[in-house]
Amino acid sequence: MNRLQVAIVDYGMGNLRSVANAFKAVAPDTTVAVTSDPAQIAQAERVVFPGQGAMPDCIRELDARSLRQAVMDATQQKPFLGICIGLQMLFQHSEEGNVPGLGVYAGEVKRFPQAKMVDVHGEKLKVPHMGWSQVHQTQPHALWQEIPDQARFYYVHSYYVVPDETALTAATTAYPFDFTGAIARDNVFAVQFHPEKSASAGLQLLRNFVNWKP
C-alpha cells in the first residue's frame, strides 16, 4: 500500500471534504485522506489541520479523539499546514472561551475589538471578518511561490493571533488594523484565511504545500 502523502486531521469539525477536494484538484496523483486515526497521521508525509468553529470545541474534540499528541508530533516533525482554527490552536491561549491552546508558539488569540472596528470613512466594520481581503507577504516563503503579494484570500473569523515573536508572522491583512494572516517557522506554515475557498491563489498555496521540502 502506498504511504499516505497528505493526512487531513478529522476532529469532527470544519469543512474537511472541501479541503480534501481542493488538494485532489491541485495534486491528483497525491494520496490524500481525511482521517481521525493517530497512527495514520503519524505515518503520513504531510499533515493538514483545517478548521472552522470555536476554539473550545476544537481543543475538546481533539482530546476526545486522542489526536493531540499526533498533531503536536506533526508540528515538530513534518510539513504541517494549519488553516483558520488550525492556526489559532498553535498558540498558548485564546480569548474565545478563555481556553489554552496547544502552546506550540507563544502568543494570544484575540477577538476583534469592537471599539476599533471602523474603516477610514468612519463606517463600522462587521465581526466576523468575512470575505476577500488582500494578504501582504512579510517574508519570502516556498508556500508563496507564484502567488503575487497582495493577492486576495477568503476569510471567515472573529478572532486573530497575536504572536509574542513578530518574526513568526509571514503575512498580514488589514481589517482595519494589520493582523497576522499567516505564520511560518521551520516545517510549519499556518494561515487564518481559507485557501480551499480562495480560488487560484489558494489552490496555488495548496499546490506549493504538496511540493514543499522544508
Score class of each variant (00 low, 15 high):
residue 172 T to Y: 01
residue 179 F to P: 05
residue 167 A to D: 15
residue 186 D to P: 02
residue 196 E to I: 03
residue 174 A to P: 10
residue 148 P to L: 13
residue 177 F to Y: 14
residue 159 Y to I: 06
residue 148 P to D: 15
residue 183 I to P: 11
residue 189 F to M: 05
residue 149 D to H: 12
residue 182 A to E: 05
residue 182 A to P: 09
residue 183 I to E: 09
residue 153 F to P: 03
residue 152 R to G: 06
residue 152 R to K: 14
residue 163 P to R: 11
residue 178 D to L: 01
residue 196 E to L: 04
residue 173 T to K: 05
residue 190 A to W: 01
residue 190 A to C: 12
residue 148 P to H: 15
residue 151 A to D: 08
residue 149 D to K: 05
residue 180 T to V: 00
residue 162 V to Y: 12
residue 191 V to C: 00
residue 155 Y to D: 01
residue 190 A to H: 00
residue 184 A to R: 09
residue 157 H to W: 10
residue 147 I to C: 13
residue 166 T to H: 04
residue 174 A to S: 13
residue 195 P to M: 12
residue 159 Y to T: 09
residue 167 A to T: 14
residue 165 E to F: 06
residue 195 P to N: 14
residue 177 F to G: 10
residue 172 T to P: 02
residue 184 A to G: 07
residue 189 F to K: 04
residue 193 F to D: 07
residue 191 V to N: 00
residue 153 F to C: 07
residue 197 K to E: 13
residue 194 H to K: 11
residue 160 Y to W: 08
residue 146 E to Q: 15
residue 181 G to V: 03
residue 175 Y to I: 02
residue 195 P to A: 13
residue 190 A to Y: 01
residue 154 Y to E: 01
residue 173 T to M: 10
residue 163 P to L: 12
residue 152 R to V: 08
residue 171 A to H: 01
residue 189 F to W: 04
residue 180 T to I: 00
residue 195 P to I: 12
residue 179 F to N: 09
residue 146 E to V: 11
residue 192 Q to W: 07
residue 165 E to D: 15
residue 153 F to D: 02
residue 154 Y to W: 04
residue 174 A to N: 12
residue 165 E to W: 05
residue 173 T to A: 12
residue 182 A to G: 07
residue 166 T to Y: 01
residue 195 P to V: 06
residue 189 F to E: 04
residue 181 G to S: 15
residue 156 V to H: 00
residue 164 D to G: 03
residue 192 Q to P: 09
residue 178 D to Y: 06
residue 182 A to T: 06
residue 193 F to T: 07
residue 165 E to T: 10
residue 164 D to R: 06
residue 179 F to S: 07
residue 169 T to H: 07
residue 159 Y to S: 14
residue 166 T to I: 03
residue 180 T to S: 04
residue 146 E to T: 14
residue 164 D to F: 08
residue 146 E to H: 15
residue 177 F to Q: 15
residue 172 T to G: 02
residue 156 V to P: 01
residue 193 F to C: 11
residue 158 S to R: 10
residue 166 T to R: 08
residue 155 Y to S: 06
residue 159 Y to E: 13
residue 154 Y to I: 04
residue 196 E to S: 04
residue 174 A to D: 15
residue 155 Y to Q: 03
residue 155 Y to M: 05
residue 192 Q to A: 05
residue 194 H to T: 10
residue 194 H to Q: 10
residue 193 F to R: 06
residue 189 F to P: 04
residue 179 F to M: 11
residue 168 L to Q: 01
residue 180 T to L: 00
residue 154 Y to L: 03
residue 170 A to R: 04
residue 169 T to Y: 06
residue 190 A to G: 08
residue 148 P to M: 12
residue 173 T to V: 08
residue 181 G to Q: 08
residue 187 N to F: 06
residue 186 D to K: 08
residue 194 H to R: 11
residue 166 T to N: 09
residue 193 F to M: 11
residue 182 A to Y: 01
residue 176 P to M: 09
residue 169 T to Q: 14
residue 157 H to M: 11
residue 194 H to D: 10
residue 168 L to A: 03
residue 172 T to R: 02
residue 175 Y to L: 03
residue 181 G to W: 02
residue 157 H to G: 13
residue 186 D to I: 07
residue 196 E to Q: 02
residue 155 Y to P: 01
residue 176 P to Y: 10
residue 172 T to Q: 02
residue 178 D to N: 09
residue 184 A to C: 10
residue 186 D to M: 05
